[in-house]
Design a protein around this nucleic acid. Structure first.
Length: 239
DNA sequence: CGCCAGGGCCTCA
DNA sequence: TGAGGCCATGGC
């Protein structure tokens, strides 16, 4: 017996995920005010670094309840206060320092100006901030500043690698290579559609990996198994 | 109790 | 330039 292994394209994968899980509407925010939403997203992006979102939510709620979603108010906290406030999200010392640096940057450069910048320039300026790596920079560009910017994370690497989405010799460990490959495929969209596509695609990938394509994957229940190189290899081993 | 979570930095080869 | 140690807390 052979497994029917069908190769997926990026856009086909997106369609399948969207059909299966529905619209995710990321990034999740809890406040209504647009300026505060941007601050909530920036905070969440830093707090969620290698941390379960559940813990981030609890910390964000503290900021909301204390009316702290404000650049000046966050900058007015000293490092020790900030660190203790975010303790539950892990790495409190590192993240407190990063939050300070990012909000100092937002204050100095002005959010209104940053919103008018193109994605590449904005991304580069975020990457200059210590504590902001590729993923966080891309999350800020895409979700906080609505720039057309695909976010790669550990889930993306894992899923694409298992699917062999770009073939078996592709370097799925390379952040930039994965990002560029997806952005290349997204050129068929207009800018606004592209932003929405990147937001949803990233959210859907994370949803699928949390539920099914875990470190120890639940391949038997996976609706993508017939498209998956990983599953087809498992299947061959068993038969 | 051990593993892992919506990473990033530093070091060292 | 990539692998490995470290940062910290909480859920399961």
């Amino acid at each position: 017996m052979r497994v029917a292994f069908k190769k997926l394209s990026v856009l086909k994968l997106y369609e399948l995920l969207l059909d299966h899980y529905g619209f995710q509407n990321w990034w999740p925010v809890t406040v209504k005010d647009k300026e505060q939403q941007l601050i909530e997203i920036v905070l969440g992006a830093i707090l969620t670094q290698n941390t379960a979102w559940k813990n981030v939510e609890i910390v964000i709620k503290k900021f909301v309840d204390s009316n702290l979603l404000n650049i000046e108010k966050i900058l007015a906290l000293d490092l020790r206060e900030l660190s203790s406030l975010i303790r539950r999200a892990g790495f409190p010392n590192q993240k407190a320092a990063t939050i300070k640096r990012v909000f100092q940057f937002l204050k100095r450069e002005r959010v209104s100006k940053l919103l008018t910048m193109d994605c590449d320039a904005l991304r580069k300026s975020f990457l200059n901030i210590k504590g902001v790596g590729f993923e966080t920079a891309d999350v800020l560009c895409l979700y906080a500043f609505n720039k057309p910017c695909f976010v790669v994370d550990a889930y993306t690497k894992r899923l694409f690698s298992r699917l062999a989405l770009f073939g078996e010799s592709f370097n799925y460990n390379s952040y930039e290579a994965l990002k560029l490959a997806v952005e290349e495929q997204a050129k068929v969209f207009k800018t606004n559609e592209r932003v929405m596509f990147f937001k949803e695609f990233h959210a859907l990938i994370d949803e699928h990996c949390k539920r099914t394509c875990k470190k120890q994957p639940s391949c038997n229940n996976c609706f993508l198994k017939h498209y998956c190189k990983h599953y087809s290899k498992l299947y061959k081993l068993k038969h």
